[in-house]
Design a binder for these strands. Structure first.
Length: 464
RNA sequence: GGCGCGGUACCCAAGCGGCUAAGGGAGAGGUCUGCAAAACCUCGAUUCGUCGGUUCGAGUCCGACCCGCGCCUCCA
């Protein structure tokens, strides 16, 4: 049984899909006004973990992730550079796709862009006007939250008690109620504008998601994800719009990822603790180490990014990689040990059970490490045989369907001159010329190649 | 003011009423090794922010308090 913490109910619930075996998943995607930072990627990697786990558990997943390519920030950015909105967002859209590939985030099935779904938004807004949930005011259209009594159910906010006045955007004074939100914004100087049957203007942010999610997934979704900061007002507004329009429960399970902080503080450019993926790659960070770091803390817990914590995650992942290397290269005796099968089965069962419990990654990783320890233990006693190798590797590959942290290509090669050096050192060792042997080892270490002398002879690996 | 989250070993982090408090990192000792590395073995919380309470029994439930943080406004 799979359980998830549902923000809507505030409790852990058994996961049941609308259609057996199929999951309709919507995740809030990037607003393409800048390069995404590692906090954004924490959310996307959480969603990737969720999706990979659902696939691992045997579900078919249809995943939609929107791209917000028109909003205040993208418009401002384009205007500052004096280029078109499309020209401006294209760079960041491309960067986003590069980044998710780098981080091994599985692509969504559809990436709808706001600017390509204006007609869907117009249709919805028109419907909301007809049903009386929305009203025109000075050329803009607003959603009236008092017409939707369930408003506040997700964020556990009582609209009556919202702190009014002080922090309300001054230029939106024309709304009937301060907490009503814009569905359609009237044209402004220097802003893109669509001519529609609603009149000229551009869509509000919230309607983009409601229109695009239901366009591809239908009026009801199984899971909708995002960062905690989207709970209010964004997701609350999506519920209001979608349920008012379709008259059906919009989303069964709302899953929200907590924030990534840096050095215990919220990331900000002024504090200098703001990192994009590119920043870290430039510092030599292995993106998969970053993936593992972002993955290895439960998604509902605040995660503190520090370089020390990243190093710990890297070392932890290295233990898994070392084990994999050992299993692939160790010389084993013929035969098999039946015990290995039961260890593998238990490990996979524990792994699955951990993740089934609201994606308890700590528990799942503990299962992986216990498996490694058990096998290492037997390896040391020669209690692993040739036929067990594939069983163990398969188990690791099963884990990796969800984690996606193992090296992609199996065999790396070294240039012939390096191989010659290694052979030269072997010769020196046989001749007990340890000074030369150590000098060569150090020389190769400087080149990023570590030599280890094992019972089966020398072996090498690259420093990651 | 309202809503909510967290405080478990040197660090990260599970556990949420009951066997000896998972797992990872770092550290110490040992086996192996020419040495190193890797691997393996062993050792690290009588204790889970504090103080009360409930219970045969509490990190685990209840209350108060102390810290740290988030949201209520664009934000993953």
């Amino acid at each position: 049984m799979i359980r998830f913490f549902n923000t809507l109910s505030g409790t852990v619930e058994e996961f049941k899909t609308l259609v057996p075996g199929k999951v309709r998943l919507y995740t809030c995607g990037p607003t393409v006004y800048d390069y995404p930072h590692i906090g954004n990627y924490r959310a996307y990697i959480f969603e990737d973990l969720l999706k990979r786990f659902l696939l691992f558990a045997g579900y078919k997943v249809f995943h939609v992730m929107n791209i917000t390519d028109v909003d205040d920030k993208t418009i401002r950015g384009a205007n500052q550079l004096g280029i078109s909105l499309q020209e401006y967002t294209a760079r960041y859209i491309q960067a986003f796709f590069e980044d998710i590939k780098t981080l091994r985030i599985l692509p969504a099935d559809v990436y709808p862009r706001a600017t390509e779904h204006i007609t869907d938004m117009v249709r919805m807004i028109k419907g909301l006007l007809e049903k009386g949930y929305a009203y025109y005011k000075e050329g803009s259209i607003y959603f009236s939250i008092k017409k939707f009594p369930a408003y506040g159910q997700l964020a556990k906010i009582n609209p009556e008690e919202l702190k009014a006045g002080a922090r309300v955007d001054a230029d939106e004074y024309e709304k009937e109620s301060v907490h009503d939100f814009a569905l359609w914004k009237k044209p402004k100087e220097g802003e893109p504008c669509w001519e529609t049957e609603l009149g000229p203007g551009r869509p509000g942010w919230h309607i983009e998601c409601s229109a695009m999610s239901t366009r591809y997934l239908g009026p009801q979704l199984d899971i909708h994800c995002g960062g905690v900061d989207n709970i209010f007002p964004h997701h609350e507004n999506e519920i209001a719009q979608s349920e008012a329009y379709y008259g059906k429960k919009f989303v069964n399970y709302w899953l929200h990822c907590h924030h990534l902080v840096v050095d215990g503080e919220k990331m900000s450019k002024s504090k200098g603790n703001f990192y994009t993926l590119r920043d870290l790659l430039a510092r030599g960070v292995d993106p998969i180490d970053l993936r593992f770091f972002l993955l290895s803390t439960h998604y509902r817990k605040m995660l503190n990014f520090t370089f020390e914590n990243l190093e710990q995650a890297k070392a932890s992942r290295q233990r898994i990689l070392d084990f994999l290397y050992e299993i692939e290269h160790r010389k084993l005796e013929p035969g098999s040990e039946p015990e290995i099968t039961s260890l593998a089965e238990k490990a996979l069962a524990d792994f699955r059970e951990g993740l089934s419990d609201d994606l308890n990654i700590s528990s799942a990783l503990a299962a992986v490490f216990e498996f490694i320890r058990e096998i290492n233990n037997r390896l040391a006693r020669n209690a692993v045989k040739q036929d067990d190798r594939e069983k163990i590797l398969n188990t690791m590959r099963e884990f990796d369907r969800v984690l996606a942290i193992l090296p992609e290509k199996k065999e790396e090669t070294l240039p012939p001159e390096i191989m010659a050096k290694i052979e030269e050192r072997e010769k020196a060792r046989r001749e007990k010329n340890f000074a030369l042997a150590d000098a060569i080892r150090e020389e190769l270490r400087q080149l990023g190649i570590i030599l280890e002398d094992t019972r089966e002879g020398v072996r090498w690996k690259k420093i990651k």
